[in-house]
Design a protein around this nucleic acid. Sequence first.
DNA 1: CTAATTATGTCAACATGGCTGACCTATTTA
DNA 2: TAAATAGGTCAGCCATGTTGACATAATTAG
Lengths: 188, 188
Amino acid sequence: MKDFSGHSTEPADKASTAGIALGNSERAIVGLVELLFFAYRDFTRDPDDILAEFNFGRAHHRVLHFVDRYPGLRVADLLDILKITKQSLARVLRQLVASGFIEQRLGEADRRERRLYVTDSGQALAVRLLAPQIRRMQQAINDTHGATEAETVRSFLFAMIETEERRRVEALLAGPGGLVVPKPEDTP
Amino acid sequence: MKDFSGHSTEPADKASTAGIALGNSERAIVGLVELLFFAYRDFTRDPDDILAEFNFGRAHHRVLHFVDRYPGLRVADLLDILKITKQSLARVLRQLVASGFIEQRLGEADRRERRLYVTDSGQALAVRLLAPQIRRMQQAINDTHGATEAETVRSFLFAMIETEERRRVEALLAGPGGLVVPKPEDTP
DNA sequence: CTAATTATGTCAACATGGCTGACCTATTTA
DNA sequence: TAAATAGGTCAGCCATGTTGACATAATTAG
């Protein structure tokens, strides 16, 4: 293992901008931060191919999923869940309704509301999109065995990563020097 | 608790599209899938305000972070980590170099390579962006105590969610009926 | 009963950050 | 010397986020 970076040797004392410096315990956490990135990267990748068949994107997926899971959801509820603007939601929701995956019914008690429900085809698509994510999550949980808590979390997040990618991520997280400098013998 | 949805009563048998049906164990996993969504939603939210000061977005954050953590990274390595195209990377990388947050040096062994390094200001920004994520992650780990593995993961993901949001997320995950139908007494 | 509030929708314009496809320059390697 | 590799660049497209302004219908408050 080479110590070449200049960053890894200094304890990030230069972080004067916010008055924050990284200590040893903080640096240990960074690996988890990165694992969460990789986990989410691969987790969201699964449904994208299916969505492409319908010319849909992730925004459609999110809407369809939550309407499927929580039938009768109002637009306001969705805005609260997704934390996006009404206009952004309207665009994808309009397409989902036009495509016959979601339908709107007037609220019985309050007729200003448009309660959202998936149609049969909407439910079929929702389940199809959910399936690979459940599979990956299930496997991640199963792979997470016999460990203390931080290790459980680490194991869980790692198992969320695409199988073929794990080697590389592991190498990367092995520390600065894991991925970079592929030919250390050439350095003069 | 009311049973009103029509979806929650049926075990999603209609998922004939992919030949997949959700069983009870699968449905139990869906909550984790949603927790991961909420966790990542709030996790990525933190640095966005800081980035806005510099007219940067998440794409800049990712590049800056990985270059900070793994100094000497090559463009090809970044493409592999981020899983985006060369053109997408080039856009944000160009801005980061122009703004003086990242600098490029020719590879010593192979002079086709442009090794990437953060400047002092680049490191300062990287640390500043990382700090709230470390804080949240640290707290999520700390809050995850005394539990079996699936519960540890659940606890971990839940603790990743913005504090004020947890009540609502908890209510939502309490099952169909948790968030929707706010006035059940009005239904005829 | 009128006025304010609420739920929702819509138009227009803009920014970010993905993508494809084509093409170019150095440099290294076969 | 030719091919492969690392990287850059231009041009255009698409998805999805943003603001701001405004409209309609229904409910609720005074």
